[in-house]
Design a protein around this nucleic acid. Structure first.
Lengths: 140, 140
DNA sequence: ATTGACTTTAGAGTAAACTCCAAGGTTTAT
DNA sequence: ATAAACCTTGGAGTTTACTCTAAAGTCAAT
């Protein structure tokens, strides 16, 4: 089993060692074990967990959100399927809302780009606000 | 022409007056004019601009991003159409990436919810991490 | 004319998420 | 065996985006 030291994991996932220690402190990612000298050692599972955290961050989840997502596990004895399912679907709906909002932006930006000739002349006719207002009219 | 005072605009857009003053200080939204007593007055255009800022914030743009988006309009005679188009398409691609990533989360949450009441699978296989990994396998 | 709700400014304080620093211990390469 | 490159901790500092406070001016209504 390959174990990573903090610097190696940091390099692998393009974060700082400080960030990894901060996440540990925040209860997001503990080192799998410590070496004799007290160095943090991370296994593949920890790497996967960290990959998840990074990805979740990238799409706009904050650390509290991520903790909640990570804690979604089915504990058949402790919680009913219904509870878990409700939490999961709530999160999913939140994600769907975000997607819908982003899609509106995507349309705005695409419309703006299409209205722009893309040539050398001053961009007098190009206005992102106009494009957005146009969308506002049709969507709200 | 109806003019809004800061408190009215704040109420209308569900932000604080402090936030509006802060955005002014950051160069995002200036009051259209001042009353004799020095009160900030906002016209419809300012309202639209603020609406844009709020929405952009909601989908994860930071203030610097938003300033950049707004500057496309403000300095349109300073930039060529090509510059504007490039910037716009860059932002659009960024938004598309976010949407793609969020869609993966959405799928994994949906998958997780559907597995939740499936019944017999071992509980340790039922986490969002596992669901996301399953998606990774089929989509990347 | 005075109360209460609004506004002004400058400046201090806050929360989240890092980021840096100091003072020291460990590992690896020469 | 000694430097370079890593790691440890605790704690201070930074950035972003507000949020709050204080001291004072303005406005509408009783």
């Amino acid at each position: 089993m390959t174990m990573f030291r903090i610097g190696q994991l940091a390099k692998l996932l393009n974060v700082s060692t400080d960030t990894l220690r901060y996440y540990e402190q925040q209860g997001l990612l503990a080192a799998s074990e410590r070496s004799a000298a007290g160095y943090r050692l991370y296994d593949e599972q920890a790497v996967e967990r960290m990959r998840f955290i990074v990805r979740a961050k990238e799409v706009g989840f904050n650390l509290k959100d991520i903790q909640e997502l990570l804690s979604i596990k089915i504990e058949k004895q402790m919680h009913s399927c219904e509870e878990v399912k409700t939490l999961t679907l709530q999160k999913r709906d939140w994600v769907r809302e975000k997607i819908a909002e982003l899609s509106m932006f995507e349309r705005s930006l695409t419309l703006l780009a299409s209205q722009c000739c893309g040539g050398d002349e001053p961009a007098n006719a190009c206005s992102i606000l106009t494009a957005l207002e146009d969308l506002d009219g049709t969507h709200q």
